[in-house]
Nucleic acid binder design. Sequence first.
DNA 1: ATACAAATTAACTCGTTGGATAAATACTCC
DNA 2: GGAGTATTTATCCAACGAGTTAATTTGTAT
Lengths: 231, 231
Amino acid sequence: MKKAKRTLKWQRDPEGMRIRILEAAKKEFAAHGLAGGRVDRIAAEAGANKRMLYYHVGNKEDLYLAVLEAAYEKIRVEERSLDLEHLAPSEAIARLIDFTWNYFIRNPEFLALLNTENVAKARNLKRSTKVKSMHSPFVEMIGTVVDRGVESGEFRVAMDPVQLYISIAGLCFFYLSNSATLSFVFGRDLLKKEAKTERLEHVIALVLAALTGRSPVTFMQAPELPAPHLV
Amino acid sequence: MKKAKRTLKWQRDPEGMRIRILEAAKKEFAAHGLAGGRVDRIAAEAGANKRMLYYHVGNKEDLYLAVLEAAYEKIRVEERSLDLEHLAPSEAIARLIDFTWNYFIRNPEFLALLNTENVAKARNLKRSTKVKSMHSPFVEMIGTVVDRGVESGEFRVAMDPVQLYISIAGLCFFYLSNSATLSFVFGRDLLKKEAKTERLEHVIALVLAALTGRSPVTFMQAPELPAPHLV
DNA sequence: ATACAAATTAACTCGTTGGATAAATACTCC
DNA sequence: GGAGTATTTATCCAACGAGTTAATTTGTAT
């Protein structure tokens, strides 16, 4: 009977509150963009008073930037945990594609946030010194893998790592990010399980065929992957 | 002296007005999204009174949808004018990629509108019966080209036309649509002339290498294209 | 316990913005 | 040249939504 007086109206939890706010803000901005996002909805979703957003993070723009920064932070962390060193070049590329694909699937908000930010010409992101310093390890990883592949003769040509990275990301990103309009236009659900499986196989087959020059089994059925999904 | 009284306060031009409104709306929504777009700015940009928007098109949502429909209409028209029949399969694919790439470059608003619409999960597009009936001729074109390529032995494998279409679009779209954030992250301007040239060559080389299995000259310098740009 | 700071709630302000109303002006047809 | 309709302008307004102010409650150190 020492602590609980009786029915406290609320309890303190600064860290928890901040996390809940950012999580709610991520959902909101991903679903509606910066302009379409509603501060009141974020507060409600976070189970907080609106004032809390300003107290713990800042105004709407600050909130949005904090979300964006956290999103970049998160993907960079996961990227770093991907170990391609001990894999054969083709395996490494397949693994990289598999990771990218599944990261996007697991984090649809990330795609939406990037879209929003690009419509805004990265206006907000440019204010972030934090993100600027977060370099993706992928470019270097890809460079190493490609070099190894060329040296061993497994790959026919040296490809610019940045171009390859953008290509891999693009092949995954576009399909998922634009699945709503594409599904509508093609009249078929691109997000159903079989469609997604097929797409991943296509992307891997396409990139590996270009790199190795060897014909993959077929572009419909790519070679099965060793232990994909989580890194 | 028959027509012009003197200093008319304004002149009628319903068709012209409607066009100016839609053009202004396209710019506005492409730059700010649906939620971020301002009806007053559209009116100002169109050199019109705000009332005109409602008189000629409808409310903000109607306006947005009209812009979206016009954008799809436009690309479909241009797509249809692309003649791949008389080209060798590899040439045809290169031509297709070149067209897609340059269409996106010439119509940055189209990319932005698609992004906005996808963030909204195609909520608005779904209301359009018009767009639903506008089928892209590319899927069929690609199917024919791929078949010809496989038959002649120029291509090694049959690829699903829809997958290939999405891949080509994705390789172009992602680079351009996300150039703002990518440029920031990589610390280099992806939109400068040389970078764009390099990218187009990379995409063509990548896709053709995957299709033909033959090594392109190099992934840095793709084979020069015969009369690209406008169809 | 009590004072003090940190965390949270409640209620309010106030500019913005989509949309509406009514009046004015231009064209067309008789 | 005048009636009638189509097009355009000039104002207005009610709702919404970001951000603020002030009061209230909770934890903590003295």
